[in-house]
Design a protein around this nucleic acid. Structure first.
Length: 901
RNA sequence: GGGCUCUUAGCUCAGUUGGUUAGAGCGCUACGUUGACAUCGUAGAGGUCACUGGUUCGAAUCCAGUAGAGCCCACCA
C-alpha cells in the first residue's frame, strides 16, 4: 500500500530543528535518571516550590503553561546553581468541581443522580474518576518539561493529607477558632451546597423594582414598599422606615397586613433605611436577605423561611408552596396586580449574587454551618507582608492582600457535598439511630465511641489546600522533608486565587507551623485571548497548550511564554506568537551546526574527542575577546534579572545575547567559508574549541527556559559521562578574567563602521558579490585606533565585504566616493560609475540637518545656567562631549558635501 | 461607592533608583540563497511616549487632574 503523494507539499528543510524527535526522549532520561528528585540529606541550601495542585478533573490550559514555565525555570535555575531544588507536584480533589463533573456524567451515561447510588457508592465512583482522569493533567505537564519531583507527588485526599486536614480542624476547635452557627449563608441551589463569599460573583443584571402596597390593619390606607424580590414577601416579618422620615414617622408601630400571606407585621424604624431610595419603606425578610437578617436581629423579629434548599417555596408559603422561586415571583406579581396592590414596576439594574460554580443565582438561606474565626489568623498574615518577611512580585498585589485581610470575615467551611474530607465531628444517637440533639457533639479525628455518627458534611476544598506547602512534606509529623524543605521559597500563581489560596496558606503556615510558607509570591497575569477576552469553553476561544507544543515544540511554547510574562500584566495571547519561540529554537539548532559539523562524532552524534582551547585569553582574536566579554555581561544580567523575578527580562536578554551577539557577529566571523574550489575548508581547532566553550555557556543560560533543545545539544558539544547532564550542570558565573573592556570598545567601533559601509552598499545597490575598497580616516584625536583597526583588518573586510582597506588619520577622500561619518571617523566608499552626485549631496545634507537639530538641543541645554550649575558634573560633561562630537561630525560632513562640488 | 491597572511605532508589548539620539517581536519597504539557519541575512521606513497642569537644571519615567479601556472589592431594598 505505497503511496507517493505529497512529498513536495511536506517539503521541510532537513536543517530545520524538529522538537518532536527529542522531547519525549530527554524527559524520560531526566525522570528515569532521578534528576528531579530532591535529597533531604544533601545539606545544600534549598529552593522549594509547591506547585499549585491542579484539579483532578483538570486539563492543562495556558494558565498552567505560563505558571509551570515560570516555576520550572526557577527550579532548573536553582538546581543548576547548586541548590537542593524541590518542586512538589500534586492534585487537588476540588470538591464541588469534581462532584459536579461526576454527577453530570452519571446523569448522562446512566440517567442516575448521586442519591440513586447513595453516598458510599457515589464517592467510590468519584474515586474511580480520579484514578482514571486525575493523572492526565500531570502527564500533560510532563510534555511541557516540568521538572517536578514526582516521587513526592501528593493528593489533597491521600491518607496522610486527610489526617492533616482533620487534625487541623480538631486543633482549631480546641483553640476556640471553629464554631457552628445558624447564619444566613450563600446557598447555591445549582450545586446543592453552601459556598463562601469568595465563590460568589456579584453580577450586574437588568431586573425590576416592584412597588407593592401593604394595607394597614386598622383604618384606611397603606404603606408602599419597593423590592427586587417580591417572592420573598411571603417571609416578611416587618416593614422598616427611617426614623427621621417625616412621611412615615406617625406610622411607626402600626401594623400592616402582609398581602397574599395574610399575616400582620409591624412597621419599625431603623436608620439603615434610606429615605431617598425607592419608596423609602423596606420590606424585611430576615430569612432571605443579609441586611434584613441584621435588621431582624436588632429588632428581635421572627424569621420565616419560605424558600427551601431546593430553591422552591416551602410550606410556609401557603398555596405557593412547591413553586420554583422564579415561577413564584411571576405568580405573586400577577396576584398582587389582580388584588390592585401592585403600584408600579420599574426597570432596574442591580447586582445579583451568582455562584461561580453553577452560575445560578445564590439564595441566601438560614442554615447551621461550621465557621473558622479568621481575625486572629489574619493579623499575623498582615504582619509578615507589612514587615517584608514575604515579598509580592509585582509589589502592588500586597495592597489587594491587605484590603482583603483587613476586612476579613469568618470562613464558612462546611459543604453539603459527598466528595471531600468529612467533618471530624461526631454525634450521639438515640434509640432510633437519629442524632441526639440533647447530647454535645465530640470533635475527633477518629470515632470516639461505637455508635456515634459523623457529621454528614465535608470541608471546603480550600480547607485542605491552605495546608499544601507543609502538609505535602508530611506535617504534622516532623519528617526529614519537613525539616529540610520547609519553609519554602516562592509561590507562583495567578491573582485569581490570591484570597482563596495564597492569603489562606500564609495564615495557615503562620498559625500551624509558626513560619511563613514561602518568602516570595510571584503573581502572574492571566492569559486572555487575542482580543483580551477570558478564554472559555463557551466562547471556544481557548488555546490548547498541547496543540501549541505539538505545533511548535515545548521549548518554543515555554520561551514565548517567558518573554510574554512581564510584570504580572495580563497576556493577550495570539497563537502566532509561538512562531517567535520556534524560530529561536531553530536558530539555536542551526548555530550549533556552524561549528558542530567540523566535529568528529559517533553514531549518536556525540563528539568522540573533547575540544579544549589552548590559546590564553590575551591570544584570542578581537571578536573572541569581545564575545567573551559580552558573555560575562550577559551572565550577570540574566542572573540578576532572575533573582529579581524579572523572567521576561532574563529571557529577552539571553535571546539578544544568543542571536544578536553570538550568531550575527561572532559566528559570522569565525565560521569557515568555502575555498575558491568550492571545497569546504576545515575549521581551526582552537577557534572551534572556543566556539564550543561559549556555546556551552549559552546552552546553560538557555536551559531553564528551553530545557529540551539545550539538553540535546549539550551532549553534542563534548564527550560526557552518563550523568553529566545539562540539567545538572553548574550555572555559569561571570569571570572577570574573560573580560576586556578595550576589546569591547574596539569591536563596537568596527561594528559601527561595518554597518556604515553596508548602509552605503544598500543605498547604492552594490551587490554583496562586488568587492569594494574602503578608506577609514580615523579622527586625529584617536590616532591610537589606527593600529587597532589595522590588526583587525581581516575582520572588518570580511564583515563588510571589502577587498581593499586603508586606515589612517589624514587620508584623502578618493574620487567619486560616498562618505559616512561614524564617531568622528570618516568612512569613504569609492563608487566610480555608481555614485549619483545629487543623491549623495542630498543624503549628506539630510544627515547634516539631522545632526544640527540634535546639536541645537544639546547646546540649548548647555546654555542653560541652571543646568550647568545644578546637574551633576558627569552629566554636564557628557553633554559637552556630545556637542563636540556633533560639531566635529557636522564639519566633516559639510567638507565632504562641498567636496562633491 | 471605594481601590487597582492600563493608554509608548500599523499590531502586541518592554522600558524602577528622573539624564537614550525612546527599544523589541510581528508586520511593512528594498536588496540578498556559491553549505548554519528563508523558521534566514543586510539595510531601512515608522513614535509630539492618551491629554492638561505641576515639581525639577532635566519627565515616557515623579505628583495632581481630565478622558478612554479593563479588573477587583462593596449590604442600598
Amino acid at each position: 500500500m505505497s503511496n507517493e503523494t505529497s512529498t513536495s507539499a511536506n517539503k521541510t528543510s532537513t536543517t530545520a530543528y524538529d522538537p518532536t524527535q527529542i522531547e519525549a526522549r530527554w524527559y524520560r532520561y531526566w525522570e528515569d535518571g532521578g534528576f528531579f528528585r530532591a535529597d533531604a540529606s544533601s545539606g545544600k541550601p534549598t529552593h522549594v516550590i509547591a506547585m499549585p495542585p491542579p484539579n483532578v478533573t483538570g486539563r492543562l490550559h495556558m494558565g498552567h503553561g505560563l505558571q509551570d514555565t515560570v516555576q520550572d525555570a526557577y527550579t532548573r535555575l536553582r538546581r543548576m546553581q547548586g541548590y537542593e531544588a524541590l518542586w512538589i507536584p500534586g492534585l487537588d480533589h476540588a470538591g464541588i468541581a469534581t462532584q459536579n463533573v461526576v454527577e453530570r456524567t452519571l446523569k448522562k451515561t446512566e440517567g442516575k443522580t448521586r442519591h440513586d447510588l447513595g453516598r458510599e457508592a457515589f464517592v467510590e465512583r468519584v474515586y474511580d474518576w480520579k484514578e482514571e482522569y486525575g493523572e492526565i493533567i500531570l502527564q500533560q505537564k510532563r510534555r511541557l518539561g516540568v521538572s517536578a519531583d514526582w516521587s513526592r507527588q501528593r493528593f489533597t485526599m491521600d491518607e496522610g493529607f486527610s489526617r492533616a486536614v482533620q487534625h487541623v480542624f480538631v486543633k482549631l476547635h480546641e483553640q476556640g477558632l471553629i464554631y457552628k452557627g445558624d447564619y444566613l449563608v450563600n446557598w447555591d441551589p445549582g450545586s446543592g451546597t453552601v459556598i463562601s463569599n469568595e465563590e460568589v460573583d456579584n453580577v450586574e443584571r437588568d431586573g425590576h423594582l416592584w412597588w407593592i402596597q401593604y394595607p394597614f390593619v386598622e383604618g384606611e390606607g397603606h404603606i408602599t414598599i419597593a423590592t427586587t424580590r417580591p417572592e420573598t414577601m411571603l417571609g416578611d416579618t416587618a416593614v422598616a422606615v427611617n426614623p427621621d422620615d417625616d412621611r412615615y414617622r406617625t406610622l411607626i408601630g402600626k401594623k400592616v397586613l402582609l398581602p397574599l400571606a395574610g399575616r400582620e407585621i409591624p412597621i419599625i424604624a431603623d436608620a439603615y433605611v434610606k429615605a431617598d431610595f425607592g419608596a423609602g419603606a423596606l420590606k424585611v425578610t430576615p430569612a432571605h436577605d443579609e441586611n434584613d437578617f441584621a435588621l431582624g436581629q436588632r429588632h428581635g423579629l421572627d424569621s420565616v423561611t419560605v424558600i427551601d434548599f431546593d430553591a422552591k417555596i416551602n410550606e410556609n408559603g401557603g398555596h405557593y408552596a412547591g413553586m420554583d422561586r422564579f415561577a413564584a415571583r411571576k405568580t405573586i406579581v400577577a396576584d398582587l396586580e389582580k388584588a390592585g396592590l401592585l403600584e408600579k414596576v420599574e426597570p432596574y439594574r442591580h447586582t445579583v449574587p451568582i455562584s461561580s460554580r453553577s452560575k445560578q443565582v445564590i439564595e441566601p438561606l438560614l442554615s447551621p454551618q461550621w465557621y473558622v474565626r479568621m481575625q486572629p489568623l489574619a493579623d499575623r498574615a498582615l504582619g509578615v507582608v507589612r514587615d517584608g518577611t514575604i515579598t509580592f512580585h509585582p509589589d502592588r498585589w500586597k495592597n489587594e492582600y491587605f484590603r482583603w485581610l483587613e476586612d476579613i470575615r469568618d470562613w464558612p467551611i462546611s459543604r453539603q457535598l459527598w466528595w471531600g474530607h468529612r467533618i471530624p465531628v461526631w454525634y450521639y444517637t438515640d434509640d432510633r439511630g437519629e442524632i441526639d440533639e440533647h447530647r454535645p457533639f465530640v470533635v475527633s479525628v477518629d470515632q470516639p465511641e461505637p455508635g456515634m455518627v459523623q457529621d454528614e458534611d465535608v470541608l471546603d476544598t480550600w480547607f485542605s489546600s491552605w495546608l499544601w506547602p507543609f502538609a505535602t512534606l508530611g506535617w504534622p509529623h516532623e519528617t526529614d522533608d519537613l525539616k529540610t524543605f520547609y519553609p519554602g521559597t516562592v509561590l507562583v500563581s495567578g491573582y485569581d486565587i490570591l484570597f482563596f489560596w495564597i492569603a489562606r496558606m500564609i495564615m495557615a503556615g503562620l498559625h500551624f507551623t509558626d513560619e511563613v510558607p514561602y518568602t516570595d509570591v510571584f503573581i502572574t497575569g492571566m492569559i486572555k485571548d487575542k482580543q483580551g477576552r477570558w478564554m472559555s469553553k463557551s466562547l471556544g476561544n481557548g488555546i490548547d497548550p498541547l496543540d501549541m507544543i505539538e505545533q511548535y515544540g515545548a521549548d518554543a511554547v515555554r520561551f514565548t511564554l517567558s518573554v510574554l510574562c512581564a510584570q504580572g500584566q495580563d497576556i493577550k495571547l495570539d497563537p502566532a506568537k509561538f512562531e517567535g519561540g520556534r524560530n529561536f529554537a531553530n536558530k539555536i539548532w542551526n548555530a550549533f551546526r556552524v561549528f558542530g559539523r567540523f566535529m568528529v562524532t559517533d553514531v549518536a552524534g556525540r563528539p568522540v574527542s573533547d575540544h579544549v582551547r589552548t590559546r590564553s585569553f590575551d591570544e584570542l582574536d578581537l571578536v573572541e575577546r569581545w564575545m567573551l566579554t559580552r558573555l560575562q555581561e550577559g551572565i550577570r544580567d540574566i542572573t540578576a534579572s532572575m533573582d529579581r523575578y524579572r523572567i521576561s527580562e532574563a529571557a529577552n536578554r539571553i535571546y539578544d545575547l544568543f542571536w544578536r551577539d553570538y550568531c550575527d557577529w561572532y559566528l559570522e566571523l569565525i565560521k569557515p567559508t568555502n575555498g575558491a574550489d568550492g571545497e569546504l575548508r576545515t575549521m581551526d581547532p582552537d577557534k572551534l574549541a572556543l566556539a564550543v566553550e561559549i556555546y556551552e555557556q549559552l546552552t546553560k543560560l538557555l536551559h531553564p527556559f528551553m530545557p529540551f533543545i539545550t539538553e540535546d545539544l549539550w551532549w553534542r558539544l563534548r564527550p560526557r559521562e552518563e550523568d553529566e547532564a545539562c540539567i545538572a550542570a553548574g550555572w555559569p558565573e561571570a569571570d572577570g578574567a574573560l573580560e576586556d573592556a578595550d576589546a569591547a570598545t574596539a569591536f563596537s567601533l568596527i561594528q559601527d563602521l561595518v554597518t556604515a559601509v553596508r548602509s552605503v552598499r544598500a543605498q547604492y545597490n552594490v551587490p554583496p558579490s562586488k568587492g569594494i575598497a574602503v578608506t577609514v580616516n580615523v579622527d586625529a584625536d584617536r590616532a591610537d585606533l589606527v593600529a587597532v583597526l589595522d590588526v583587525n583588518r581581516a575582520t572588518f573586510a570580511s564583515l563588510a565585504g571589502v577587498d581593499t582597506l586603508s586606515f589612517g588619520t589624514s587620508l584623502a577622500k578618493p574620487k567619486a566616493s560616498a562618505a559616512v561619518v561614524v564617531d568622528r571617523h570618516e568612512v569613504f566608499v569609492p563608487l566610480a560609475g555608481m555614485i549619483d552626485l545629487d543623491q549623495e549631496r542630498a543624503r549628506l545634507t539630510k544627515e547634516i540637518e539631522q545632526k544640527q537639530g540634535f546639536l541645537r538641543g544639546v547646546e540649548r541645554k548647555l546654555a542653560n545656567e541652571n543646568f550647568v550649575s545644578r546637574a551633576p558634573e558627569a552629566v554636564v560633561e557628557k553633554e559637552r562631549q556630545k556637542a563636540a562630537d556633533a560639531r566635529a561630525e557636522i564639519a566633516k560632513l559639510e567638507a565632504n558635501r562641498d567636496d562633491l562640488g
